[in-house]
Computed example of a mutant assay.
Amino acid sequence: MFSILIAGRLPQVNFQQVSETQFVIPISDVDHVNHLVVFMTGQIPFPDNYGGGGNWPSTEGPSWIYLGKITNAKPSAIFRINKLKDNESKADSASTLFSAFQHQTAVPTDGLLGISVEPLSQLEQQVQPSDVTPTTVASNVEFVSKMLNNFVNYVTSFVQNVPGTSEQIVPLSIVQTWFNNFQRRLSENPNFWKTT
């Protein structure tokens, strides 16, 4: 039903079914894997109103980090795991899955991808860590545009006229204050700019 593709490798279809709704596939040499393409083979569709949630094992106990989903309407997805491998301990949206597989040690592997077949309503409630979602040119352009708009709006509210000229200046301390505030807000919530 599922397959994965890693750049420079042949597609892999050797998923192992570990329960009625859970599947895993070992990934060798995971240190050289930045992205995984997960796709349905087209041979078996999901039942109506179901999809597959992609998951990556967390290093913090028997939990898995949600990567995203595939469905009959969206039969493929790209998951970025390079940041995830480096920052697994930061993941805060792991779900406890694949308990049957956790006790098996027969498959030597560097990494493991799990797919859990679940109702779409449950998959919609899952949250991806920001390190997993591939960035896109559109989101980068949106971020830069909003950041620059914020900067210009803030700085221009502090414009001062230079006496005897048509020049206008902004004290450097205002620019530094904007920068410090923006950095603080970004560290508190990397997605704050999406709501402004």
Score class of each variant (00 low, 15 high):
Val117Met: 07
Asn14Cys: 06
Asp131Phe: 14
Val13Asp: 09
Ser130Cys: 14
Ser130Asp: 13
Val144Asp: 13
Ser58Gln: 12
Phe46Asp: 05
Arg9Ile: 02
Ser3Val: 04
Ala106Asn: 14
Val141Ala: 14
Gln17Tyr: 05
Glu124Gln: 11
Ala77Ile: 01
Leu36Ala: 00
Glu118His: 10
Gly61Leu: 10
Arg80His: 10
Thr96Ile: 09
Asn181Trp: 02
Asn180Gln: 06
Pro163Glu: 12
Glu124His: 14
Val33Phe: 03
Met147Glu: 08
Glu188Ser: 04
Gly42Asp: 04
Gln126Ala: 11
Ala106Arg: 13
Ser3Lys: 14
Met1Glu: 08
Gln12His: 12
Asp110Val: 07
Ile70Gly: 03
Leu112Glu: 02
Asp92Met: 14
Gln122Phe: 07
Gln128Ala: 09
Ala73Phe: 09
Ala106Tyr: 12
Val107Glu: 04
Phe101Lys: 00
Ile169Leu: 06
Met147Ile: 10
Asn181Ile: 00
Asp86Cys: 13
Trp64Lys: 07
Ile44Trp: 01
Met40Gly: 01
Val33Met: 01
Val117Trp: 04
Phe158Ile: 02
Gly52Phe: 04
Phe15Cys: 12
Glu142Asn: 13
Trp56His: 08
Ser95Val: 13
Val38Trp: 06
Thr105Ala: 13
Trp178Ala: 01
Leu148Glu: 15
Thr136Phe: 08
Gly68His: 10
Gly52Gln: 03
Val13Pro: 00
Gly53Asn: 05
Ser58Pro: 14
Asp131Leu: 14
Ser145Ala: 08
Asn161Thr: 12
Lys83Trp: 10
Asp86Ala: 15
Ile169Tyr: 05
Ser76Cys: 12
